[in-house]
Simulated assay, not measured.
Amino acid sequence: QEVSNLPKEIKGLMSLRGEVIPVSDTGVMLHGKPLDVNEQSKVLLFELNGQMVGCLVSDAKDIIDIELSEIKPFHMNTKASEYFFGVVERENKMILQVDPNKFLGRIEDLDQLPARLKEELA
């Protein structure tokens, strides 16, 4: 069933354990163009204000534990930098820490989307 008037950042919907979850496209959100979906694409799930939201990413290699003491301040002068709150260095790689509240919070009417989806998809 088609869903009308989704925010431009929402790639689509997924169902997980009976819950309809909006999935954002990080390519649109960070670079203004959609990500190519392929075998490496993943959906990362976040809980934001009590609701699940997915983020489509081009790849996710691992889930790692990070101590707060490892996170260093992140300073970069780009539009996207407002969504990152820190950086961690592991095995000579820099891992940016995303603030999901800022990143996903910019999607217009995201908090109202689950209720609207349930109504439209019923």
Rank of each mutant, 00 (worst) to 15 (best):
Q1K: 15
V3K: 04
N5A: 15
N5G: 10
K8N: 11
E9I: 02
I10N: 08
G12K: 12
L13G: 03
S15P: 00
S15N: 10
L16R: 10
L16N: 06
R17P: 01
R17Q: 13
G18M: 12
G18A: 05
V20A: 14
I21G: 02
P22R: 07
P22L: 01
V23S: 07
S24Y: 06
D25V: 06
D25P: 02
L30M: 15
H31G: 03
G32V: 04
K33G: 02
K33D: 09
P34F: 13
P34C: 14
L35N: 13
L35Q: 04
D36L: 11
E39H: 12
E39L: 12
E39D: 15
S41A: 11
V43F: 08
L44W: 07
L45M: 13
L45N: 07
F46T: 06
L48H: 09
L48F: 03
N49P: 00
N49S: 13
G50I: 10
G50N: 04
Q51G: 02
Q51W: 10
Q51N: 10
M52D: 03
G54Y: 09
L56N: 03
L56W: 06
V57R: 04
S58D: 13
A60L: 08
D62I: 05
D62W: 07
D62F: 08
I64P: 10
I64M: 15
D65Y: 12
I66G: 05
I66A: 09
E67K: 08
E67L: 06
L68H: 07
I71Y: 03
K72Q: 14
P73E: 10
P73M: 03
F74N: 03
M76H: 14
N77D: 15
T78P: 03
T78G: 01
K79N: 05
K79H: 13
E82V: 15
E82G: 00
F84V: 06
F84P: 00
F85M: 14
G86V: 08
V87K: 06
N92F: 03
K93I: 02
K93N: 14
I95C: 04
I95N: 15
I95T: 03
Q97I: 14
Q97W: 01
V98G: 01
P100Q: 07
P100W: 11
K102L: 14
F103E: 00
F103N: 00
L104P: 01
L104N: 04
G105C: 08
I107H: 04
I107C: 00
E108C: 00
D109Y: 12
D109T: 06
L110M: 11
L110E: 07
D111P: 00
D111Q: 13
Q112W: 07
Q112C: 02
Q112T: 14
A115H: 05
R116S: 09
L117T: 06
E119I: 10
E119W: 09
E120A: 15
L121I: 15
L121W: 15
L121E: 12
A122Q: 14
